[in-house]
């Protein structure tokens, strides 16, 4: 196709056309780099910017002009964040502590049932691999899952442990952080919107988890023949379960306490009044 001057002008226009979505995305990233702003603050400021742009557009400005005027009115992201921090200086630390506590909760939850199931899966695959392929000893020597239980190997080997135990969790966190699972997150948001709902959800999940743990301990104790001098100590198992339950309850309490107030809903607020 011959490139007529009109065609070239069209291309140039397309290339230089202002991308409002991209510009807002850039602005959002600048805001996200400020430590004083919570995700909720950022979301609120973005809706404000969009309202501002819409009003300016109605007054006859172009998309690009509206965007820059709205940004100028809002002020530099750094200054904006400083105003928020001034109003509530503890918010920055409360927010950091909140995500730290959420992280610890996630690690604890992950190292429970999901990791156990993953380990079983890896072990099953490893056994299939070793038994069905009749690998020579010298190959098996270099393969991490020879005859020994893979779980033991995973506990001993740092790299293997990071790769298999924590990589799925790290991947999940990265996907969540990049906002690619926002629809799935908003589906479960209902349970985390108010402190009461969070505490009820966490208590029910923990109750199920620890009941399962105690049940598993009972089952194991029933089948294992104790080694000489070692007694299957149910008391110790219960103590461990109780200790874990207390730590989990404290963590849930901390997260509930740190849950930003603006996450409460109207019904939650009216019930408190």
């Amino acid at each position: 196709m011959a490139e007529s001057p009109q065609y070239i002008v069209q291309i140039m226009e397309t290339r230089t056309r202002f991308d409002l979505g991209g510009a807002i995305e850039g602005w959002r990233k600048q805001l996200a780099a400020q430590p004083g702003l919570t995700p909720d603050n950022r979301r609120e400021l973005e809706t404000h910017l969009q309202d501002s742009i819409a009003t300016l557009r109605k007054s006859g400005l172009t998309e690009e002009e509206s965007f820059w005027v709205a940004c100028r009115r809002a002020g530099q992201p750094q200054e904006l964040a400083e105003e928020f921090v001034k109003a509530d200086p503890s918010a920055v630390w409360r927010d950091r502590l909140f995500w730290l506590a959420i992280g610890i909760c996630a690690m604890r939850a992950w190292s429970g049932l999901p990791v156990y199931l993953l380990e079983r899966l890896y072990f099953g695959i490893a056994r299939l691999f070793a038994v069905n392929f009749h690998l020579p000893d010298w190959v098996l020597f270099y393969v991490p899952f020879r005859g020994e239980p893979i779980t033991e190997f995973m506990h001993r080997n740092f790299v293997f442990s990071i790769l298999f135990r924590w990589a799925p969790l790290i991947y999940l966190v990265a996907v969540l952080a990049s906002g690619r699972m926002s629809r799935a997150m908003s589906a479960v948001r209902f349970f985390f919107e108010t402190r009461t709902r969070l505490v009820v959800t966490a208590s029910v999940s923990l109750a199920i988890y620890y009941s399962w743990a105690v049940f598993a301990a009972f089952r194991t104790l029933g089948h294992v023949t104790p080694a000489p001098g070692v007694f299957p100590d149910l008391g110790l198992a219960l103590q461990l379960a109780a200790g874990n339950a207390i730590i989990s309850a404290l963590l849930v309490g901390l997260v509930a306490w740190l849950l930003p107030v603006e996450r409460r809903t109207r019904t939650g607020q009216l019930a408190l009044d």
Binding site: L45, G75, E83, F84, K86, D88, E262, R266, L270
Partner: peptide
Amino acid sequence: WSEGTVYPVLHRLEREGLIASE
């Protein structure tokens, strides 16, 4: 008022329990 004025005020009033949001 700018964004830097109104939102910190709104959030402070919310923390004080005088207003709520949704």
